[in-house]
Design a protein around this nucleic acid. Structure first.
Lengths: 203, 203
DNA sequence: CGAGAAACTCAACACATGATGAATTCCTCT
DNA sequence: AGAGGAATTCATCATGTGTTGAGTTTCTCG
């Protein structure tokens, strides 16, 4: 039970608004937040509209269906090509540290964190999205990383690293277990780096 | 076209059934499967009923509300006390291997896997369950494990291990990314064991 | 055998949801 | 200035949901 509204009903007015705020962007922000917080099914068009200060029908006007709103809201926020080039490829002796630093840094940007959380949450319950994510992970991440490695079973190792990253996100941000959730980058880095280092380069 | 003779619609009959199949158990099984497959919100009482070959109202007759059905379906399938005693406590030099072996073995039992998946899926989208799980992890798992360890930040390290386990479950069973999803216990064990070993006992 | 409880289904309610089409207001371009 | 289109809301529909109460059949126990 979470509805607290202003007593005076704000009485929206029909028709185009004066001025030119970029409503479309506001909607996307609201959608991201809502999807991240509640997952795909539970995030309702009406709630997203409300959060954006807009009627739900407008979302349909812009994006057609809820599916398409979701896709529009979730453009993957980082370019995997760049990540691989700048982080994985490079001095092999310190790759674990770089990966850990990169991931932890990424999560310190609120917009990125929001999108990642939305992805994880939704992938967990919506088969369609899980499938989409499987394809993305396999083709955009694993292949690109694995080719840089010089160990046996490079895909398996890459995926183990990713699984540690996803699990960490779940534990910190979805479940919110303490003290992990409040641990700083400086505390986590020395614990994570060796794990990634070993996954990627062997003993 | 009003006379339905063939089982296009199987036409259930009202009233108590003859014989004595344990319907309550059938319902619980169906509920577990449905919750695991779709998550809490998307799993509908009607669908669970259908899967159990039973009217949705019967679920209410047995369990009252959907919440209570969910709780009844999800009794945690393993006793944490025993796990800690038999797995964590013990020869410190090989604890990582034991943990990895235990977890991988656990997931080979289909009923256990189903419940775990239901928990992960639901915790990802339903704040209430996430909260429940946070409490469980902190009080039933982390504290019991951490007290056995002889390293700095034992809770943090325990939680990192758990996060790797949860992430692995997501990657293998929820996302289903290959080759991780099809990797055998024998392939995974030597890669996971050192991770757990280091988390739990330091370098 | 008979009564009462248990197991079971049916029909319905109250509500929330995604979607649509019409109506209104404003902006842009000639 | 005026026309056409974009932005926006409103009312409404069809559907699916959790839940309830009443009715029917079978079991159990005296």
């Amino acid at each position: 039970m979470t509805s607290a509204e202003q007593p005076a009903s704000p009485r929206k007015k029909v028709g185009r608004r004066p001025g030119s705020a970029d409503t479309r962007l506001v909607v996307l922000e609201a959608a991201r937040a809502e999807f991240a917080a509640r997952g795909y099914e539970k995030a309702s068009m009406r709630a997203i509209g409300r959060a954006a200060g807009v009627d739900a029908a407008l979302l349909h006007h812009y994006f057609g269906t809820k599916d398409r709103l979701f896709l529009a809201a979730l453009e993957f926020p980082v370019d995997p090509q760049m990540v691989v080039e700048q982080v994985i490829a490079g001095d092999r002796a310190t790759v674990g540290e770089r990966v850990a630093g990169f991931v932890l840094g990424l999560w310190e940007q609120p917009e990125v964190l929001t999108r990642m959380l939305a992805l994880v949450r939704v992938a967990a319950t919506t088969e369609q999205v899980a499938q989409l994510m499987r394809g993305f992970v396999q083709e955009e991440l694993v292949r690109r990383v694995a080719v840089e490695l010089d160990v046996e079973r490079p895909e398996l190792r890459t995926e183990l690293m990713i699984s540690q990253i996803v699990g960490l996100a779940m534990a910190r941000y979805v479940i919110g277990v303490e003290p992990l959730a409040s641990a700083t980058r400086e505390e986590l880095l020395p614990l994570l780096a060796p794990t990634f280092q070993r996954y990627l380069t062997g003993e």
